[in-house]
Amino acid sequence: MIELVRVSQKYTYKEVLKDVTFTAEKGQITCLLGLNGAGKSTILKTIMGLTPIHGGSIRIDGEEINQNTYERVSYIPDHLAIPASMKLSDALRFMEDFYSCWNKDRANELMRFFDLDLDERAGRLSKGTAAKFNLVLGLAQDSDYVIMDEPFAGIDLFNRERIAEVFSSELVGNRGVLLTTHEVKEVEYLIDKAVLLRDGVVARSFECEQVRSEESKSVVDVMKEVLLT
């Protein structure tokens, strides 16, 4: 379980995150939802230790984050961080050298799943293809948790559908997924749990099926209700 307890972050005098508390369980898909600037990406970065926190704590399966926990969590940023001149095959080899938890078989399987060309160069990929390759790099690590920043942003319909399919597949399997998105409709049926953020505060977090059965509301309904009032 990824657990954030009263996490806060300040940037000069501005409070970016205020008492953020939520959990993301293994075997579940948890989604951070909110408008631009609500603090979604910042939260993912705090979990990876990429940005400091000024209060609260972050634990992975009960352990405070440290260099060992990073092997258990893979992070897929919102852009492809591979040099433009690098071939995809070279990028995969690079990742294999870099990560002890790299799973070569799964990497190959993911390349086939997304129909990617090993001989292509990273800089020549379309936005949708780059997003898919970015997912390959993250999901091929044998981690317990995968966190993804805006995997659907700026991607066309067919590519979005293909990306959505990977969540239900064995390629994600029983890992815990934490993702951010502002394209709620894309994930409406895909996620177990939604955490709604507004101005760095968790406005509401809920189980999607529970809200549907108890309140007859969709995730979009709850988001409108919470964020527009």
């Binding site: 898909i29 559908e161 399919e165 969540f167 239900s168 597949s169 064995e170 049926y189 996620i191 099926e209």
Partner: peptide
């Protein structure tokens, strides 16, 4: 369960349920 989740594009835990 997982096949159905992928075919229907739904959450695997929902298919399980």
């Amino acid at each position: 369960r997982r096949e159905l989740a992928a075919l229907l594009k739904i959450n695997p835990n929902t298919a399980q349920r």
